[in-house]
């Protein structure tokens, strides 16, 4: 097994999940993850593999996003609207879709650095790895994460609340 194979087997799932959460599109996420491993191929040595992979993936997204951020935002918005307006046959599915849409909104509302730190943490990166990948000082990771979590949860709950109110109004 080559080194890249090992890297792939070890980190692909986490990387794709991280990117999916980050991007909201699994295809895109897989694409970026693949490109990340391709970059790894060219690397002679990588010190901290996980931090390196997540950093490269993050930068790939950033570079690409910079190119056509507006187009993607628009499309993502359209997709979201479509999801929200879609009438799902099953309530559970609808419920889940709404949760996903709210989660997306809440995550998107975070500052980029907070969002990335949080998503990396969720994939098991430790504070040093997060600091390395995001070029933060290790001491600030705790603060970054605590802020990210609080904001995420608060904005999600706010969305939840306004949805409940909408539903209540619609019912009455």
């Amino acid at each position: 097994m080559t080194d890249v194979e090992r890297l792939f087997r070890t980190y692909n799932a986490a990387l794709v999940r991280y990117l999916t959460r980050r991007l909201g599109d699994r295809d895109w996420a897989e694409e970026v993850a693949q490109e990340t491993f391709v970059r790894a191929l060219r690397q002679t040595s990588i010190q901290n593999e996980r931090a390196w992979l997540f950093a490269v993936a993050t930068n790939l997204v950033r570079d690409e996003a910079r190119k056509d951020v507006r187009r993607r935002k628009h499309l993502a918005l359209l997709a979201e609207q479509e999801r929200e307006s879609a009438v799902e046959p099953e309530e559970t599915t609808l419920e889940r879709a709404q949760e996903a849409a709210m989660a997306r909104k809440a995550v998107d509302a975070l500052a980029e650095r907070d969002r990335l730190a949080l998503l990396m943490r969720e994939e098991g990166l430790d504070y040093n790895e997060i600091a390395e990948a995001l070029e933060l000082s290790p001491g600030s990771v705790g603060t970054t994460l605590s802020r990210a979590r609080r904001r995420l949860v608060e904005s999600y709950e706010a969305l939840q609340k306004s949805r409940e109110e909408r539903e209540k109004n619609a019912a009455s």
Binding site: R83, A100, V107, L118
Partner: peptide, 19 residues
Amino acid sequence: ASSRILTALDNAPRGVIPA
């Protein structure tokens, strides 16, 4: 809670961004 919220993102559809 944030872990749970993030988990909801895992069912991301494919092809949201038209490729």
